[in-house]
């Protein structure tokens, strides 16, 4: 049982015009097995929340705390956060030229598990995970995210999540840029990991579409850098119908 606790998180980003405040006091607790949908209009700070938790150097934490099972996440380096059990599936995964997917995955798994995976079982493990995400085997010889289609990038993110076995995963607009088939495959991947590992999920999305495939336990409406309304799955239905207008004008 793991708990990610975010308390009064305030975050700024340094721009040419000075410090710009983006998160204005976020409170959120995610436990193992729970799925929290974070929904909100563009520019509300959803991605900032994701990247701040992962430790992107661009974001400056000005107030508040983030803990994972009591340990201070904000004191950890980016790789230590991953080792502690956090995973961020990125909206725009980064290309790493000249580094093959297989080399990347092996290096990451070795770092997370603290020892190199056994060659024999490892190859099978990767193959099985790739097959379940409808990925060709030659995929592992390609360079990380280089020349990947939008769908391939997202599948590759979920593949990593499946192999790295985090405690809490943050999925940042994983549904963006996916057609219906890819969305279903990616969602099934998330559900499979959840079923196998009691994963806690923070699902950041603009649209309710993905919630048909990944059922949230809680829905949080995000606007202006904080959570403005919370509820169960029925809140998503309301958003589907009425949009974010009332939160933006408020």
């Amino acid at each position: 049982m793991s708990v990610l606790e975010i308390k009064n998180l305030q975050v700024s980003v340094l721009t040419d015009a000075g410090n710009k405040e983006i998160l204005r006091g976020v409170d959120l607790t995610i436990r193992s097995g729970e799925t929290h949908a974070i929904m909100g209009p563009n520019g509300s700070g959803k991605s900032t929340l994701a990247y701040s938790i992962a430790g992107h150097p661009k974001y400056i934490i000005t107030e508040g705390s983030v803990t994972l099972d009591g340990a201070d996440v904000l004191e950890m380096s980016v790789d230590e956060r991953a080792k502690a059990g956090l995973f961020l599936a990125m909206q725009y995964p980064v290309e790493v030229p000249g580094v093959s997917v297989s080399n990347f995955l092996r290096t990451a798994v070795t770092a997370i598990r603290g020892e190199a995976p056994k060659v024999r079982t490892w190859v099978g493990e990767v193959k099985a995970a790739m097959a379940s995400l409808n990925m060709d085997t030659d995929f592992s010889e390609r360079n990380v995210n280089e020349g990947f289609s939008g769908g391939e990038k997202k599948r590759h993110e979920i593949l990593q999540m499946e192999l790295l076995k985090p405690k809490i995963a943050i999925l940042d607009e994983t549904d963006s840029g996916l057609d219906v088939d890819a969305l279903r495959i990616v969602s099934e991947g998330v559900n499979r990991v959840k079923a196998n590992s009691d994963l806690g999920v923070m699902l950041i999305t603009h649209y309710t579409r993905i919630l048909r495939y990944i059922k949230p336990d809680y829905v949080h409406v995000f606007a202006n850098g904080k959570i403005v309304e919370e509820g169960g799955p029925e809140l998503a239905d309301k958003l589907e119908e009425k949009g974010y207008a009332e939160y933006i004008t408020a």
Binding site: S77, V78, D79, V94, V96, A111
Partner: peptide
């Protein structure tokens, strides 16, 4: 950042790149 966010320490990440 991408590599580190997958648990890879910064020195190894630099070497990979």
């Amino acid at each position: 950042f991408y590599l580190q966010s997958r648990g890879i320490p910064s020195d190894i990440a630099r070497r990979l790149v």
